[in-house]
Design a protein around this nucleic acid. Structure first.
Length: 418
RNA sequence: CGGGGAUUGGCGCAGUUGGCUAGCGCGCCGCGUUUGGGACGCGGAGGCCGGAGGUUCAAGUCCUCUAUCCCCGACCA
């Protein structure tokens, strides 16, 4: 992509109405644009990051046999009446409206109930189970207070997966498989070292729910981590009794701030019974469907990554989710353009994602934007060096560049292990 | 929802005890000189000072109401 053709604009100054680091960096770098408190547009560059995160999640969810679908944002009141969760006293984040004919509708803040109802139309027999589906959906929640940039919005992107099982045992097996898949997701997006499986309060259904927490001061939660066991306990359930129960010792726990980047729920048969969703087993007996649900806040994940991977010059995207791999620039447009175009074509043909800064501006500005946008690699072309087949390549997190020839350039950038 | 702060060209800000044509920097447009870490000179364009109502000869500035944004707290299946 040539910047001259892209819808991309960076800024030097930081917006005064944002305090959070993720919003400041993402707005300055041209990744997001604020529409109102808690609602952000994903600009072309930001959308690429979102799509890359989705790809990682999609691959891992598909790998454990889940199927992607897409539910509606509009939800009828009646479905939520079944579980009593239409009531604003029970769920205080509803956005509600009504149709012209007066029918009440809500905008999806969750899809548990609608999903359960939808599935019930298709699943009647034990032969139809187990089944798992997921979606990437925009959730709308009327939060009292939006905060922390894209980390806690009123409109945000979420991956929610639902597994329908015949028995508790079958549910538990899938639950364990998903726990591992989630860890792979965090590993792949670069958050592995900072992310902990965390025990939190379970609500009405179970003693614990499990969530994934990423260590960052910008997070809202306080958790206690055991670094060796890679397990954490949320402050809300932290006690001697719980530690013993989990086989942890107080001496080894460290208190940190963290952001919730995923949450998994084991509902057992309760939702099935509540909503009257049953299947017939081998003996022709009616049995409730067992439900578990698994969420990852996709846009929040982007915010957390921005919070963690940056320095004083800008963002530093992990390779797997960077909007492109290479920031390519000529020192001087005109004089170096011929060589830079050539490199652009070579890299593009090699399947390497390049953002080519072909603007006729001074090199200093390009360097600054390269750092701010934070692609993993920067390639600089000058005619003097290019004439002897030498090109400058630098990793975003390195200080010193390297000089390689064309071949070396392609080899280095094609190597996925890099 | 309680408390605190803010709102002035696209962005960041200044504007004295009310005073006459509302400034500065960035960005933008034009011309010229520049070109390895956000260059410089000259010349431009761009503002009902968040909104409504009041006080006054006179309101960006004072009063009342209201909207929005940020932060702390509460809340967060």
């Amino acid at each position: 992509m040539r910047i001259s053709q892209m819808f991309l604009k960076t800024t030097k100054s930081v917006p005064s109405d944002e305090q959070s680091n993720n919003a400041r960096l993402l707005i300055r770098g041209g990744f997001i644009c604020k529409e109102m408190a808690g609602a952000y547009t994903f600009l072309p560059l930001g959308l690429r990051v979102i799509e890359n995160i989705k790809t990682v999640i999609r691959e891992e969810m598909n790998a454990i046999g889940s199927s992607e679908l897409l539910m509606t944002t509009l939800q009828p009141k009646e479905i939520w009446d079944i579980t009593g969760r239409w009531d604003d006293q029970v769920v205080d984040v509803w956005f509600k409206s009504q149709l012209k004919n007066g029918q009440q509708v809500g905008f999806g803040w969750s899809h548990e109930e609608p999903m359960m109802m939808m599935i019930s139309k298709y699943v009647q027999s034990y032969r139809d189970l187990p089944i798992s589906v997921y979606q990437f959906q925009t959730k709308l929640r009327n939060e009292l207070r939006a905060k922390s940039g894209i980390m806690r919005g009123r409109e945000f992107l979420m991956k929610d997966m639902y597994a329908f099982s015949r028995t508790q045992k079958e549910l538990d097996e899938f639950y364990e498989i998903t726990k591992q898949a989630y860890l792979r997701v965090y590993e792949r997006v670069g958050l592995g070292p900072y992310t902990y499986l965390t025990f939190a309060s379970g609500g009405a259904f179970t003693q614990f729910s499990q969530e994934y927490q990423t260590i960052t001061d910008s997070g809202e939660d306080v958790i206690y981590i055991d670094k060796d066991k890679k397990i954490a306990v949320n402050e809300e359930v932290y006690s001697e009794k719980v530690l013993t129960q989990l086989g942890l010792t107080k001496e080894k726990m460290t208190k940190v701030k963290a952001a919730e980047v995923g949450n998994i729920f084991n509902f057992g048969s309760i939702k099935g019974e509540q909503m009257g969703v049953y299947y017939s087993d081998e003996a022709s007996q009616r049995q409730p469907i067992f439900l578990s649900s698994y969420g990852i806040g996709v846009s929040r994940l982007m915010g957390v990554i921005a919070e963690i991977f940056n320095d004083e010059s800008g963002l530093m995207w992990p390779k797997q989710i960077a909007p492109a791999q290479v920031y390519l620039m000529a020192i001087k447009e005109g004089k170096d353009t011929k060589y830079t175009n050539e490199i652009y074509n070579i890299l593009t043909e090699a399947g390497i994602e390049v953002i080519y800064d072909d603007r006729d501006i001074r090199p200093g500005e390009k360097f600054a934007d390269a750092d701010l946008i934070g692609l993993p690699w920067r390639v600089v072309v000058s005619s003097e060096k290019a004439a002897i087949d030498q090109y400058e390549i630098k990793e975003r997190n390195e200080k010193k560049p390297l000089f390689v020839n064309k071949q070396g350039l392609v080899a280095k950038l094609s190597d996925r292990r890099n």
